[in-house]
Simulated assay, not measured.
Amino acid sequence: MKSLAYALMFLVLGWILPVQAADVTEPTQVVEQMTDSVLTVLQKNEGRPVDRALKKEVANIILPHIDFTTMSQYVMAQYWRQMTSAQQDQFVKLFKELLVKTYSNSLNHYHGQRVKITGSQQISQNPPVAQVNMVIQQPDGGPDIPVIYALLQQGNTWRIYNVYIDGVSLVLNYRQSFGQIAASRGIPALLRDLKAKVDD
């Protein structure tokens, strides 16, 4: 789970470059603008305790850029089709709350890291999927850590539905753990466990 916390943390860090306005927001532009806003907040508060107000401020910046429904569908895989509409809605809500909680706790790991965007590419046209590649540059001179954002175009913007850090997929990590529960104990048990994690 530590790798997931880092993945969520680095979702919001970046080395920001100027971008040009466009009718259709480009994947790199989405990541740059989001990380620019969050990095400004983190730098302003560096050295101070990470309190509830800071967590909320950062969460309000990143949440509009994440497609929790698509992420939930990929996480649950074949079990998504076995869920009722009410169960799907409940899962999306609880999974979002779990990610926000995990991410908020990971803010304490920020100590001046820099992230450099190294490129982006279109993965598919139908559906329109792209990826933005980054490397995390450690302040102590440690090895760079590769990060990949997977984004899906929705209308005139792109939203993140998966994050890979050092080759580890956030979606696959949760799919393995949630899938085991769904297979052995059923969907209702999974939802109860997820709610317990959120409320803990």
Results as ranks from 00 to 15, higher is better:
S3G: 00
L4R: 00
A7F: 01
A7N: 02
M9H: 03
M9V: 01
M9S: 00
V12N: 02
L13Q: 02
L13K: 02
G14K: 03
G14D: 06
G14F: 05
P18R: 08
P18L: 12
P18V: 10
V19G: 07
A21G: 14
T28H: 09
T28S: 14
V30T: 13
E32D: 12
Q33N: 15
Q33C: 07
M34Q: 12
T35H: 09
D36L: 11
S37P: 09
S37A: 15
T40R: 15
T40A: 14
V41T: 14
L42Y: 10
L42T: 14
Q43M: 13
K44A: 14
E46K: 12
G47E: 10
D51M: 07
A53M: 12
L54P: 09
K55M: 14
K55A: 09
K56A: 11
V58A: 06
A59N: 15
A59E: 15
N60K: 12
N60L: 06
P64L: 04
H65G: 01
D67Y: 10
T70Q: 13
V75F: 07
V75D: 05
M76L: 13
M76I: 07
M76R: 10
A77Y: 07
A77F: 10
W80R: 03
W80C: 02
T84Y: 00
Q87R: 02
D89E: 10
D89W: 00
Q90N: 02
Q90W: 00
F91V: 02
F91K: 00
V92E: 00
K96E: 10
E97K: 12
E97H: 08
V100S: 05
T102P: 02
T102L: 09
Y103C: 02
S106Y: 03
L107A: 05
G112H: 11
Q113C: 11
V115A: 15
V115S: 12
V115K: 05
I117Q: 09
S120V: 04
S120M: 10
Q121E: 15
Q122N: 13
I123Y: 07
Q125D: 14
P127E: 15
P127D: 13
P128G: 05
A130L: 04
Q131M: 05
V135M: 07
I136V: 11
I136T: 01
Q137I: 15
P139W: 05
G141T: 09
P143R: 06
D144P: 12
D144T: 12
I145V: 14
V147S: 05
V147H: 04
Y149C: 08
A150P: 08
A150D: 12
A150G: 10
L151T: 08
L152C: 06
Q154E: 09
Q154Y: 01
T157G: 06
I160L: 06
Y164W: 01
I165L: 04
V168L: 02
S169E: 01
L170D: 00
V171A: 01
L172T: 00
Y174K: 01
R175Q: 07
Q176I: 02
F178I: 04
Q180T: 03
Q180G: 07
Q180V: 03
Q180Y: 06
I181P: 06
A182W: 01
A182V: 11
S184R: 10
S184Y: 03
R185G: 02
G186I: 05
I187C: 03
P188I: 08
D193L: 00
L194W: 07
A196H: 05
D199L: 08
D200A: 08
